[in-house]
Nucleic acid binder design. Structure first.
Lengths: 252, 252
DNA sequence: CGTACTATTGATAGATATCAACGCTGGTGG
DNA sequence: CCACCAGCGTTGATATCTATCAATAGTACG
């Protein structure tokens, strides 16, 4: 489709994400370019909420592995490390409540969008509508995580995460066949899914023993995607919402 | 505030929910009245997604206890019952993906909002903006649930749920002091939180033994709110987002 | 080489699921 | 009225999953 026309400009990641939910005006895209312009790169293990941040600021993660961070009241707090929950997708918009925040599990490119700028964005009807759909999709992913953590045992949870990451990263072109970079420590993975480090390790070894995956030097290889999906009860529908909405946009 | 002016009309629940995020035009409210007009009442244990429903239909639950339902692939499927996850708030908007749906754990009043109507609604900037904020708040609640289920043990989870329901129901005026109706079976509660029926029962008995609650004949009494909140690590901030946004609206 | 982080392994304890059984309650048909 | 039944709550016994503690091995890096 896009290849049929001459494209005078390169859309940024945010624009591409939002335009999946419906077309935007050129002026919209310029506004989005302005927003993206302020991106910063942060290292691993950083809390994205900085001192003095206004609550309800929105963070946009362009690249990397961010995760929800537990407020420091949890049992894991005495480790000195906050406890991560729920691995977020890249190119994800995240509202900054005052009850919890996001941390980086790997180096990330992020944009901090202050309240004033959000209001500016939401004055554009098409941007606003895309933002809403995007949030609905994120919500669907969270619901899937809820099921994932609540109803499956460790082995299935980890298998599910591996499947989800494969699809996500393939979408963004960051997977090489059934192989991708997983720059996370076993401890971090465990925290993300509510498993202890030791148990996480044993689960990984189970997956290796079943000849489902290979994991070495931050490189993950899925040896049998079909069997892994079956084991985890993986159903990719919840990640596909965006295509459906994009298609439905034709009706408007 | 509202009591200072003569109010010619009674706002419906949806209108009230959305207006918490910013003022709406009278014509907006009329449109919302039209939407609400089509509500239906369903019994307990019903799946809100009906045959022939278009995907991405949105359901609005005006009253009752709805919950996420697992697709029938889970281990609990052979019970004949789908497995519930994540108790949803009343007056909650829920997008209908094709990967999962919502069921009722008690009689509910619901409105099914078809795609065409959603599009109509999202043509109103103020409604759309309120919808977006509302979705962001729902997302925050889901994140809290993720932490709740992933990081706390059964006792804390249940305590947390009881605290959350108290605040929610007080907000809607459905709590009587520290007492409220909980028309859910122990098995349903357990499913909701990822606990077996038996264990749910034992957790409840622990709470009783600690003289924190009373639960009999669907009536729940919290004997010591402060101690219950402390036990569960309950932090109501994530439910307060709406007030913050409402206040911020003054800046627009 | 030594230090620190990560991965791995073993042993043990706690949390939770599962299976089975029993009592209570409310309805229903005889 | 009674016998029966179904759903819910409760209890005990046991098995499985997972956390925790402790120790060892591998690996990167100065």
């Amino acid at each position: 489709m896009a290849s049929n026309r001459a494209v005078a400009r390169m859309d940024n990641l945010l624009t591409r994400k939002l335009e999946a939910f419906g077309p935007l005006y050129v002026s919209d895209k310029q506004l989005l370019d302005d927003v993206i312009g302020t991106s910063r790169i942060v290292g691993s293990g950083i809390d994205l909420a900085r001192e003095g941040d206004a609550p309800n600021e929105v963070h946009l993660i362009l690249e990397g592995f961010p995760a929800d961070i537990n407020p420091s009241q949890g049992p894991a707090a005495h480790h000195g490390l906050p406890r991560a929950r729920g691995l977020l997708r890249s190119a994800c918009l995240h509202s900054q409540g005052n009850d919890h925040s996001i941390g980086t599990l790997s180096p990330c490119t992020v944009v901090d969008i202050p309240r004033a700028r959000i209001l500016k964005l939401t004055e554009r009807p098409r941007i606003l509508r895309a933002l809403w759909w995007a949030t609905l999709v994120d919500e669907a992913t969270l619901r899937e995580w809820l099921v994932n953590i609540g109803a499956r045992d460790g082995l299935q949870r980890v298998a599910h995460l591996i499947c989800e990451l494969l699809l996500r990263l393939q979408t963004v072109g960051l997977a090489n066949g059934n192989t991708y970079e997983l720059p996370l420590t076993q401890a971090e993975l465990g925290d993300t899914m509510g498993l202890s480090t030791v148990h996480m390790n044993r689960v990984i070894q189970q997956l290796r023993a079943k000849e489902l995956i290979t994991l070495k030097a931050q490189k993950l290889v899925i040896l049998d995607v079909a069997r892994l999906k079956k084991l985890s009860g993986f159903n990719p529908n919840y990640l596909h919402l965006r295509e459906q909405n994009g298609a439905a946009e034709n009706h408007v």
